[in-house]
C-alpha cells in the first residue's frame, strides 16, 4: 500500500506541474503576447480609463441610449462579479409577475400601445445576466425613442443599427443580433455624447 501511495504522489505531482502550471502559464504567455486585448477582457478605454468590455452588458438607463436585456446578475443586475440567471421555471408566479411588470415598463418607455407585442428578449433575463446582445426587433422599437431624445432623424439611428448588426458566422452559424455596448458607443461617436 505504501508503495502504491508513493507512486500516486510522484505521478500526481509531475502531472500537476505539467497540466496545472506549465500549460496554463504557457497559454497565458501566448495569449497575452498574440491576443493581448482579448486576454485582458476586450476592454474599451476612454482617456486611458476602461469604460466597458464589449462582451459584457452594462446597465443603460438613459432614454438616449439603447437598453440591454433585463439582468438577474447580482442585486441590481449587470454585476460583473456575480453572473446569474433567474432560474425561474415556466410555471413560476415570480417570473409571471416580473415579465408583466417589464412589459408595461417597456411599452411606456417606448410609447407603444397596449395591444402591441413586445420582443421576447426585451422582457426576459438572460442566462448569464451579462448578455451584451439584443434582437433586431428590440433595437428597432427603441430607435424611435433614442432618435427623439437625441433630436435626430429616426432613419439615421436605423442606419446605425443596420451597420452595427452582427451577421451569422460564414452565413450559417448563428443569427443576426446587435451588441448594445458597441451600438451605444457608435451612437456617441456619430452623434456626440448627450450633455445633461
Amino acid at each position: 500500500m505504501f508503495k502504491e501511495i508513493k507512486k500516486s504522489v510522484i505521478l500526481f505531482s509531475g502531472l500537476t506541474l505539467i497540466c496545472a502550471l506549465v500549460y496554463p502559464l504557457a497559454i497565458y504567455a501566448i495569449g497575452n503576447s498574440v491576443f493581448a486585448d482579448q486576454a485582458k477582457g476586450s476592454l474599451v478605454h476612454e482617456e486611458e480609463n476602461p469604460v466597458a468590455s464589449t462582451l459584457i452588458a452594462q446597465n443603460f438607463t438613459q432614454p438616449y441610449y439603447f437598453h440591454p436585456r433585463p439582468s438577474a446578475a447580482g442585486e441590481d443586475g449587470y454585476d460583473g462579479t456575480s453572473s446569474s440567471g433567474s432560474n425561474l421555471g415556466y410555471t413560476s408566479q415570480k417570473l409571471h409577475d416580473a415579465v408583466k411588470e417589464r412589459v408595461e415598463a417597456y411599452r411606456t418607455e417606448n410609447s407603444l400601445s397596449t395591444s402591441q407585442k413586445v420582443p421576447m428578449d426585451a422582457v426576459t433575463t438572460s442566462g448569464s445576466g451579462l448578455d451584451p446582445h439584443i434582437s433586431i426587433a428590440n433595437a428597432t422599437i427603441q430607435a424611435k425613442r433614442v432618435a427623439e431624445v437625441r433630436g435626430i432623424e429616426e432613419n439615421k439611428v436605423i442606419d446605425v443599427i443596420r451597420k452595427s448588426t452582427q451577421q451569422p458566422y460564414f452565413g450559417i452559424i448563428g443569427k443576426e443580433k446587435i451588441n448594445v455596448v458597441n451600438l451605444n458607443l457608435t451612437l456617441d461617436r456619430e452623434f456626440g455624447k448627450v450633455k445633461i
Binding site: P24, F35, G80
Partner: peptide, 30 residues
C-alpha cells in the same frame, strides 16, 4: 485554448477590473 483567446475568452491573472460605465456608473468585471 489559444483559439478561445483569439475569440475573446480571457486569460489573465489580474485583479478584477473596476470600470466607470458609459453612463458614469460603476461596474466590476471578474
Amino acid at each position: 485554448a489559444i483559439f478561445l483567446i483569439s475569440q475573446g475568452v480571457i486569460q489573465n491573472l489580474s485583479p478584477y477590473v473596476d470600470i466607470t460605465t458609459i453612463e458614469g456608473a460603476t461596474q466590476t468585471l471578474a
